[in-house]
């Protein structure tokens, strides 16, 4: 019980101290996860919408894969990215292993299926409503895709938040490809894992509370912006 109480005071102290090392960890966590989510959106939105909209051989299999890959184990993805980026791997020459870029790549791979799968569902639902109109206009496939993604934008923020939640909370992949190097690739989740293994339970828990607060802050910000926008466009 005292550990938990200590954790809260540790968390408070951490937040109040503006400790440079601590802020660097928080900053890197946000940078890696937000970059990964951005990349995943750029791939996942059009991919999910295309699977929803276009009939092609193997479409069912792709949809099944996207849904399955939503639950990819982070350590497995971390391991695969590690093998690809390691010196003897196919992309070893790039020298990306144990850098934030490697962490962004691994998290983007984890998040893309989530955003693509949720986009597919959202766009498919909207197509049911818009389909007649867009086909009557004889809209080109890319115009259909653009219209649906744009008009689904408020529903799609849920997909983005799900992806962000996955990225910011994930430890296995960033640990393997980042290596939890102090002042280089240490993020909040790997720091928590480290402090726990060192026996600094209060510090670990304190970091955990800060992580939750940050996730809450990001989500709340997105939701408020979203609600204002949605009201303006009369989605609800």
């Amino acid at each position: 019980m005292s550990t938990i109480l200590n954790a809260f005071s540790e968390a408070g102290a951490l937040l109040a101290s503006f400790d440079a090392d601590f802020l660097a960890i928080v900053g890197l966590s946000l940078r890696v996860s937000l970059s990964a989510v951005l990349i995943a959106c750029l791939i996942g939105f059009p991919l999910g919408a295309a699977v929803a909209l276009f009939r092609f051989p193997g479409r069912g299999a792709v949809a099944l894969m996207l849904n399955t890959f939503m639950g990819l184990p982070p350590v497995v993805i971390g391991l695969l990215v590690f093998l690809i980026l390691s010196r003897s791997g196919p992309l070893g020459v790039l020298g990306l292993l144990f850098t934030p870029t490697a962490m962004i790549i691994a998290q983007a791979i984890l998040v893309t299926p989530i955003i693509a799968a949720l986009t597919r569902q959202t766009v498919e639902d909207l197509w049911r409503e818009y389909g007649d109109h867009l086909r009557s206009l004889d809209a080109r496939p890319l115009d259909r895709l653009g219209t649906l993604i744009y008009d689904a934008r408020f529903s799609l923020t849920t997909a983005v938040l799900a992806g962000f939640g996955r990225a910011i909370a994930e430890v296995g992949a960033v640990m393997i490809v980042g290596g939890n190097i102090d002042h280089a690739t240490r993020v909040m989740t790997t720091a928590i894992a480290l402090e726990t293994s060192k026996g600094n339970l209060a510090t670990a828990l304190g970091l955990g509370i800060v992580l939750l607060v940050i996730a809450l802050a990001v989500t709340a910000t997105v939701q408020v912006i979203n609600a204002i926008g949605a009201r303006k466009a009369a989605i609800v």
């Binding site: 109109h133 009557s136 008009d151 408020f154 466009a233 989605i235």
Partner: peptide, 14 residues
């Protein structure tokens, strides 16, 4: 050609 439906399809825009 153009078509107008019984329940008009309104885009989520102005």
């Amino acid at each position: 050609q153009a078509m107008v439906f019984q329940r008009p399809v309104m885009l989520r825009r102005s």
